[in-house]
Amino acid sequence: MFLINCPYCGERDQSEFSAGGEAHIVRPKQPTELSDDQWAEFLFMRKNIKGVQLERWNHAHGCRKWFNMVRNTSDDKIHAVYKMGEKPPIK
């Protein structure tokens, strides 16, 4: 059970949050220009990294804000959290 430092509310129990998968997969601005392959890349393909990953979390039972997290998926250690739109802090 992680202890997550919501950038808006502070440290809260994991049960207040929901995970939203890999971060920084930007929705294409012009989807119609994309091939099926490229669209599938956005839609389904994931790095699924074992190691330090940037990912989205939502404080669903709190402020309901989305934010990003730097977390190592091989030991679940959270290195940093940062707001949507911000650049990831150095890993």
């Binding site: 059970m1 998968g21 990912e55 679940d76």
Partner: peptide
């Protein structure tokens, strides 16, 4: 399953 990616073979108590 938990909703997050993890390679730890550990999940949450919830």
């Amino acid at each position: 399953t938990d909703a997050y990616v993890s390679y730890t073979q550990r999940g949450s108590h919830d």
